[in-house]
């Protein structure tokens, strides 16, 4: 990644991975990866299965620790912080696989997250109402989270992460399992997180249309390394070139 002029960078408001590597018993999942996420921007993180996207999210959120390299949150070195401490510092995430509180209702899942950051029970309730409405889950608010179909469970994960009113939110494949018709709603929510709440969003997804549509910048990972980085325009050209050679459809990365 090209070194930026440090003067131009806002002093606070960055989540950074700096030279992060992570190996699992010989398997190099990440190699010297840099990533920056500012507030009020949406960064896309794409790459084939096994590229290391989830591993990077884990390292950024404290669910996993880098073998070498560090993680910074608004100028502080948080590399060794446990996840709950980063959560209190304004970092939220969604999970590629489940992690809804299955025994709670959909509404309670969101409320507990709002309460966790100190909202009053009335505020928690309005926040849950608003988020579930925005994500099209209002009709299911009083159902048990255990009965949600896959796509709705992802949306619930997004609602729950946003209920903490994070400064940065990392979404691991939130659109997986959604129908084509539901994707624009998710895109609208991602934009509103950026524009209305001023949070930074790291968006991982295999749906390239969504990524190209909502992201300000895109970073491509492949086999644990940063393969390319740029604006949606630039990445789109890259993908077109790759497709020309590989004969892919361009729908999936």
């Amino acid at each position: 990644m090209a070194e930026q002029d440090p003067q131009r960078r806002r002093p606070s408001g960055l989540l950074r991975a700096v030279g992060v590597s992570r190996s699992f018993e010989g398997l190099q999942a990440l190699t010297d990866v840099d990533l920056e996420l500012a507030r009020s921007e949406v960064v896309g993180l794409i790459g084939p299965n096994g590229a290391g996207k989830t591993t990077l999210v884990n390292v950024l959120t404290g669910f996993d620790f880098p073998t070498t390299g560090r993680v910074e949150l608004e100028e502080r070195d948080v590399t060794r912080w446990p996840p709950q401490r980063r959560g209190r510092a304004g970092l939220a995430r969604t999970f590629q696989h489940g992690h809804a509180f299955k025994g709670l209702t959909v509404r309670e899942n969101v409320e507990v997250a709002a309460l966790g950051v100190g909202a009053s029970s009335r505020d928690a309730r309005t926040r849950a109402h608003r988020l579930l409405g925005a994500l099209g889950l209002a009709a299911r608010a009083d159902e048990a989270a255990s009965v949600l179909p896959h796509g709705d469970e992802r949306k619930l994960g997004v609602a729950r992460a946003l209920a903490t009113e994070p400064r940065f939110v990392l979404m691991d494949e939130p659109a997986a399992g959604l129908t084509e018709a539901e994707v624009p709603d998710l895109a609208a929510v991602v934009r509103s997180v950026r524009d209305e709440h001023g949070a930074g969003v790291l968006l991982i997804d295999h749906n390239v249309t969504l990524i190209l549509d909502v992201c300000d910048r895109i970073q491509v990972l492949d086999q644990g390394r940063t393969l390319a980085e740029g604006t949606p325009e630039e990445i789109r050209k890259n993908i077109d070139v790759a497709n020309a050679y590989l004969g892919g459809s361009g729908r999936d990365v």
Binding site: T61, P83, Q84, R86, G87, R88, A92, R93, F95, H99, F101, K102, G103, L104, E108, N109, E111, V112, A113, L115, G116, V117, G118, S121, A124, R160, T164
Partner: peptide, 24 residues
């Protein structure tokens, strides 16, 4: 109660509850 909701969430998935601000 709200603290009861915290207890139930923690009983479901302690780690996830913690990152959402539930005080262990």
């Amino acid at each position: 109660t709200t603290i009861g909701l915290h207890v139930r969430a923690a009983a479901q998935d302690f780690r996830t509850a913690r990152i959402l601000g539930v005080r262990a």
